[in-house]
Design a protein around this nucleic acid. Structure first.
Lengths: 165, 165
DNA sequence: AATCAATGTAATAACTTTCGTTATAACGAT
DNA sequence: ATCGTTATAACGAAAGTTATTACATTGATT
């Protein structure tokens, strides 16, 4: 099984808040336009991010904004906020190992630490990335995009990009 | 979403093969008795492990055995064999980010490397564990169990375990 | 060659989770 | 009071997991 798209949608939300936050009110409809999923899905995810203390959402008037500095919001915070996993465990366990079998009786004891190690490795890497990285990255990408189109000569000189005709 | 229990079932299978392989023929019914899931589930997982070259399964006569040395079978090999994830990607992506939006147009470029890093961290940790670790671990646990019951005095002397009454 | 225990695999269904959609109440500024 | 918006419930469609039944096939044994 894969981790649900709520996580990438949430990351998309943060990137959009950075790019458009100054010029637009970040409503669920606005976000739904960029992400192209139903605005109720967006609102549910916004609620989860709000409950986790990562953003503030204005009722009535509308709009979302960060509740913390971008450097203080890690990918793990976002993942934990939107991915509602039972017990926070990444690996699902078969439910009824046989207690009358030496292996069945000990399988949890055997695996739990190892599986936790693996999950920890993932979560530790998730904590290395923050919304600040997201913001820097999306700004660079959009910047590169506009310089490609508007001052293509520079781009050619630097990177030798082949332009058609 | 969690990773499916096929992974822990597969690990259970390897542990059972180690503990019982010398005294019993490891059939899907035998395994189903320890894991307590339907034997067809077991057979499907055995087939996936066989297709990945990790075990050999005897048709007709029945029974499963390792196809490689225990040290050469990593948790990642097992995970990859049984967890049929699209493109091998851990993170599901929302399908239709808006190409007319600068963020929607760049979100994949923005996230793909970061998400791959996170997935790599998990898979790298998975590669550190092998079936040999599994075997050593389950043998230790079962050994500790029997010494608790049969020569409880030793266990008390060593670990100061509290026994009731 | 017939038997038998076992695997391989298809088909179906129950169950769970995700995602989409509609509907409605509540909010807050104007 | 109105209007745009959020909050949330309810329902359903779609996809994935797990369980179960069924049956053809295999290969050793007799």
């Amino acid at each position: 099984m894969q981790i649900s798209s709520r996580f990438t949608i949430a990351l998309h939300i943060f990137a959009a808040m950075d790019v458009f936050g100054k010029d637009y009110k970040i409503t669920s409809d606005f976000l739904a336009g960029s992400i192209q999923v139903n605005s109720v899905i967006i609102r549910n995810i916004l609620s989860q991010l709000r409950n986790a203390g990562l953003i503030k959402v204005s009722r009535g008037t509308g709009g979302a904004e960060l509740a913390k500095a971008p450097e203080e919001i890690t990918f793990y915070d976002i993942y934990a906020a939107v991915e509602s996993v039972e017990d926070g465990k990444l690996f699902r366990f078969h439910k009824n190992p046989n207690p009358d079998c030496p292996v069945g009786r000990n399988i949890h004891l055997l695996l739990d630490d190892m599986l936790d190690d693996i999950q920890d490795a993932m979560e530790k890497e998730m904590k290395r990335y923050t919304v600040a990285d997201l913001n820097g990255g999306i700004e660079d990408l959009i910047g590169a995009e506009t310089s490609e189109n508007q001052i293509g000569v520079e781009a050619e000189n630097q990177a030798g990009t082949e332009t058609e005709a």
